[in-house]
Design a protein around this nucleic acid. Sequence first.
DNA 1: CGGCATCGTTTAATATCCTAGACACCCCGG
DNA 2: CCGGGGTGTCTAGGATATTAAACGATGCCG
Lengths: 182, 182
Amino acid sequence: MANDVSSRLKAVRQLHGLSQRELAKRAGVTNGMISLIEHGRVSPSVASLRKVLDGIPMSLAEFFTMEPGGTPQVFFAATELVELGEGGLSLRLVAAHRPGRRLAILRETYEPGADTGSEMLSHAGEEGGVVVAGRVEVTIAGQTRVLGPGDAYYFASTMPHRFRNRGRERCEIISASSPPSL
Amino acid sequence: MANDVSSRLKAVRQLHGLSQRELAKRAGVTNGMISLIEHGRVSPSVASLRKVLDGIPMSLAEFFTMEPGGTPQVFFAATELVELGEGGLSLRLVAAHRPGRRLAILRETYEPGADTGSEMLSHAGEEGGVVVAGRVEVTIAGQTRVLGPGDAYYFASTMPHRFRNRGRERCEIISASSPPSL
DNA sequence: CGGCATCGTTTAATATCCTAGACACCCCGG
DNA sequence: CCGGGGTGTCTAGGATATTAAACGATGCCG
């Protein structure tokens, strides 16, 4: 019910504090049309919807991607220990209890010798991160590099990848992936 | 050129190895309509486009989000200084030069007194982050909290939000948002 | 109370989309 | 040479979206 164009548009318009007429004027369409759309009495053409969203402004991608009034909660989120890894690898997931999220944000801690495993990881989506402390050896699609504090990485998760701490001090990374791989 | 519905649909259809007629049959529309859309001679209604995409199948969000012909590269990414903020706020974006990414990963530094501004931010998508150093006052949809090292947050970006460093030391956050707000 | 502003809704006429069906083309097998 | 099956394109007419303008409801001020 909150997944169709009508509800989304109404939600988005009200969130930006615009009246039907005001939005219509900015978008260069009529107020009546906005009323009809928001009531689901018509299904606007993509061209019209784009014009309307330009008045907000918001892209079509944003519009269809956004979480419609669903349950957009506020979180001062806890980080939850997720698990695993052959010794010395610990992952803490931000907002783990929130299913349906678009993002997985992780605090990864690699003790000396920790390793994501000898067989390369590969999954859908994209991911990236920033090294906060220590050093880590990153291998992506055959290329290997050692990253230190302040260094960053970003890649399509379909590329085979592996992380190892070959140094002597603990390494910490903040990473994110979308869609969530955890 | 590759940003309108016509090019996107054609790309997506061919990527799935479907002819206009075959897609039309699966979607329950006519082949002529698909031809018209792919030529930009009409701008389909959202309802029609949804029906067409159901035949792929693909959601509207995916359709408008996807990078047509994108080449997802591997990155040991540089962080690029983005700008701004009333004094003392600096943002470093990971893989800034990669358009069409699904994620924006930021290294945010708040000098004492730095502030995202008195008028609340609000946009599509979701975002979250982890505080790496210092303290920051976060206000989301009316609720205010002070977060320190190791604390995390996560929320729908449509909620009005604001970040301020009211302490005496520099604060650093690693954050991520999807779809990218920068 | 009346007057004036805003709001969202509705209606008749017009512009646009969408369908059904024909058309032109190409390739392969008779 | 003439079918048959595939492709994408085009046109006429019915279906639907969109406009322009009127309507009723609310709130505020004199």
